[in-house]
């Protein structure tokens, strides 16, 4: 019924900042597996939606919500429930 457009999204790099704030290192090379269609892609190749009002990461293949981050006054909230796996290259997490 609906046709979806990528016109209002950015690539995952645009969302790397808020997620990097959570993990403490650059997440752009982390391999994220979609909990919907099971496709895997590095964080930088996922789809980002910014400021609406949090930061949202979606699967480029099926638009499934992978993860989101919200910064409140005194907390960072992280929801990864839409992704089945995050694989962190050791060089990224120890850099």
């Amino acid at each position: 019924m609906t046709e979806q457009s990528a016109s209002n999204s950015l690539d995952g790099n645009a969302a790397a900042g808020p997620f990097t704030d959570v993990f403490g290192f650059d997440v752009s090379t982390v391999l994220v597996t979609c909990g919907g269609c099971r496709a895997s892609a590095v964080f930088a190749e996922q789809r980002a939606f910014l400021g609406g009002p949090g930061t949202v990461l979606r699967c480029p293949g099926c638009d499934h919500l992978l993860a989101r981050v919200v910064q409140t006054t005194d907390e960072l909230w992280l929801d990864m429930s839409g992704s089945s796996c995050w694989r962190f290259p050791l060089e990224a997490s120890t850099a």
Partner: peptide
């Protein structure tokens, strides 16, 4: 009029 969304723009024809 800033455009902020949590997901892709939804194109829905009024016929549907």
């Amino acid at each position: 009029f800033p455009v902020l969304t949590a997901g892709p723009t939804q194109y829905v024809d009024t016929a549907d």
